[in-house]
Amino acid sequence: MRIALQALVLWLAFTLSAFAVPVRIKDLADFDGVRGNDLVGYGLVVGLDGSGDGMRNAPFTEEMLAGLLERLGVNVTDDALRSKNVAAVIVTAALPPFARSGSRIGVNVSAIGDAKSLLGGTLVMTPLKAADGNIYAVAQGSIIAGGVAAQGDAARVVEGVPTTGTIPAGARVEREVEFDFASVDNIRIALRNADFTTATRVEDAINRDFDRQLAVTLDSGTVVVNFRNLGEVNPARVVGRIENLMIEPEDRAKVVIDHKSGTIVVGERVRISRVAVSQGNLTLRVAEAPLVAQPNPFSEGETVTVPRTDVELRQEPGIGFAEVAGETNLSDLVEGLNALGVRPRDMIDILKSIHSAGALHADLIVE
């Protein structure tokens, strides 16, 4: 069953590669300056049903709760703080490019103390800062927890991760990132997977669509587009036109092996040189079966344990030598090994050995 599933995965991989379709540039690359910014903040979640931080085990929660109450005009002492309905959390968010003041973004909330669950809690006003130390957003709202936890006197059941949660549209942008996109003279297109062939195809597609020398390839991962060659134009409209151009991306030959599931995924361009393969399994089994000997009734003897070990060494039949002709693709090799009854784990070992011999012409990625 596993071999059949593996063969199906390989067939799908080669089928999708053989009928590759053009892809939009916006799905292959990022535009310089058009990027988000990470935000982080430290806040409090209140309203928990006894599943919050223990004040003595999380002193930072106690200090922050006391500071919050003091700012609200309530004077308390440390001994008066015994609530278990409060939890300290780290709040993270991503500020989208060109986000304007007043717009809302989603946030993620994660407990940092010994809280058991954030289910049903409410995040109190939390400033979110960027790497420059400035506050760009403020988060507040009810948390949607990522799991459920139930506890009794002698057992506890946890489903998912109840100590994390999200607040959709839970933060309001208070500060904008200054970037005048309309005044730029050129923009760089950064390919997510650097490749010279793909970069040149992006350059050719842009120049062909605008019917002039507008784009230039700098390296395998960067293409520069010069807006000045178009005269007085709106850069945003030009980028909107460029990102929807279609090209056929190029990729390196790769073989990805997942040891945990025994899955093998290959690329279309994987090739194998002429090589001979032989494989077999050696199994060693050791079993302990101690024998207990007791003395006769009413005798002065002692009960003793006599060790007894069964050792079995078994050589399972292998596939012998099988020759793989030159310029064979990986699909043909796996099909032949499947016909010989090679198990998925053994197939992975064979592919690694072929790669070590220099006959597998691809990047071997083992996860």
Rank of each mutant, 00 (worst) to 15 (best):
T122F: 09
I350C: 07
V76S: 03
R285S: 11
G221W: 10
D204F: 01
A149H: 04
E316K: 07
V74Y: 15
V40C: 04
A339V: 10
A362H: 10
G113F: 05
A155S: 10
G133R: 07
A93Y: 12
G221C: 11
V173G: 10
Q6K: 11
D258K: 13
D204A: 12
S220E: 14
A287N: 15
V107E: 13
V107N: 11
T222H: 12
N134T: 07
V46F: 03
I348T: 08
T77C: 01
P59W: 04
F181P: 06
D310Y: 09
L39A: 06
L10G: 07
R241H: 12
L340C: 03
R208T: 08
D180R: 10
V286Y: 13
V40G: 09
R71W: 03
G358A: 01
V306Y: 14
H355V: 00
F31P: 12
E316I: 00
L28K: 09
A236V: 14
I135D: 13
T263S: 13
L218I: 14
V173W: 10
R241E: 12
E62Q: 15
I242T: 04
L333R: 11
E203M: 13
D27V: 00
S117F: 08
F31A: 09
G165N: 05
A253H: 08
L16N: 11
E63H: 06
L5Q: 12
I350V: 15
S103L: 03
E63K: 15
N134S: 14
G147K: 11
S220P: 06
D258M: 04
N186E: 10
T77I: 00
R228V: 00
I90C: 02
K254D: 05
Q151G: 08
T126W: 06
T217W: 01
G121M: 08
M1K: 13
G152H: 12
R188Q: 14
L128I: 04
A236C: 01
R156K: 13
A182C: 01
D114W: 10
W11K: 13
K26Q: 10
G267R: 07
E288F: 06
I257Q: 10
I135L: 03
T305W: 02
A115G: 11
K84F: 02
L214R: 04
V40F: 06
T200Y: 08
D363M: 01
